[in-house]
Computed example of a mutant assay.
Amino acid sequence: MKLGFSAKKDGFDCTKWHSTVDDKGKTLVIIKTTQNFIFGGFTKNGWISGSNGRYISDSDAFIFSLRNDKNDRESQKFTVKQGEEGNAIYYHSNFGPIFGFGHDLYLKSDLKTGCTDFGWAYDTPNGITYDTDEAQSYLAGSYDSWIVDEVETYFI
């Protein structure tokens, strides 16, 4: 793995993020919030410039949770749901990384805020249903009341 982008070093700006990561293939995005949640996603197909406003298929994409202080959960990996591979990631030059249709994981253009509507295109843990408070707060502690401390993107 090679670090391609660090928001603390390169700036909290989706334009800079895209200029660094677009068309580079496999990427691992790691997000750390000011509340110490650590989560992110992987795509083997990467962020393809020129595909503005469209979903990119990736059957190997996944979302993960590394640290979740809210419920002291262990690290987990969540694969894209069968039948949702075509909605694995969403490319738009005006936003940061977006995983899943319905935006299971979404960073806004400032790379400091976003939302997690977890469970639309990606599997959730057993017992957690999409479109519930528990699903929306699972990765970051809340649906959209979290602030990013760092975003790193690695090339694999």
Rank of each mutant, 00 (worst) to 15 (best):
M1I: 04
M1N: 11
M1F: 09
G4M: 14
F5K: 08
K8C: 08
K9Y: 03
F12D: 09
F12M: 06
D13K: 08
C14V: 14
C14I: 10
T15C: 11
K16M: 11
W17F: 15
W17V: 07
S19G: 06
T20Y: 08
D22R: 11
D23G: 08
G25N: 10
K26M: 09
K26L: 05
T27D: 00
T27N: 13
I30G: 00
K32C: 07
T33N: 06
T34S: 05
Q35M: 06
I38L: 08
F39I: 02
F39P: 02
G40A: 06
G41W: 02
F42V: 05
F42P: 00
N45T: 08
N45E: 13
G46T: 08
I48Q: 11
I48A: 04
S51V: 02
G53C: 02
R54I: 04
R54Y: 05
Y55H: 15
Y55L: 04
I56C: 04
I56M: 11
S57H: 10
D58Q: 09
A61Y: 01
F62W: 13
I63K: 01
F64V: 01
F64I: 02
F64N: 01
R67L: 13
R67F: 06
N68H: 11
D69E: 11
D69Y: 03
N71Q: 10
D72I: 00
D72Q: 09
D72V: 00
R73M: 14
R73V: 05
E74C: 06
S75N: 01
S75Q: 08
K77C: 04
F78V: 03
T79V: 06
V80E: 08
Q82A: 14
E84C: 15
E84Y: 15
E84K: 15
N87D: 09
N87G: 00
I89V: 13
Y90I: 05
Y90L: 12
Y91T: 06
S93C: 07
S93W: 10
N94K: 11
F95Y: 15
F95N: 12
F95V: 10
G96A: 12
G96F: 12
G96C: 09
F99Y: 14
F99Q: 05
G100D: 03
F101P: 00
G102S: 03
H103Y: 13
L105P: 02
L105S: 01
Y106K: 14
L107R: 09
K108R: 15
S109L: 06
L111E: 04
T113R: 14
T113G: 03
T113Y: 10
T116L: 03
D117L: 14
D117I: 09
D117Q: 03
G119D: 10
Y122F: 15
D123Q: 07
T124A: 13
T124H: 01
N126V: 07
N126E: 14
N126F: 08
G127R: 06
I128E: 05
T129V: 08
T129Q: 11
Y130F: 13
T132K: 12
T132F: 09
E134N: 08
E134D: 12
Y138D: 03
L139R: 01
G141W: 12
G141Y: 07
G141A: 07
S142F: 10
Y143Q: 11
D144G: 07
D144K: 14
W146D: 03
W146P: 02
W146S: 02
W146T: 00
I147F: 09
E150N: 15
E150A: 12
V151T: 14
V151G: 04
E152W: 06
Y154P: 01
I156L: 14
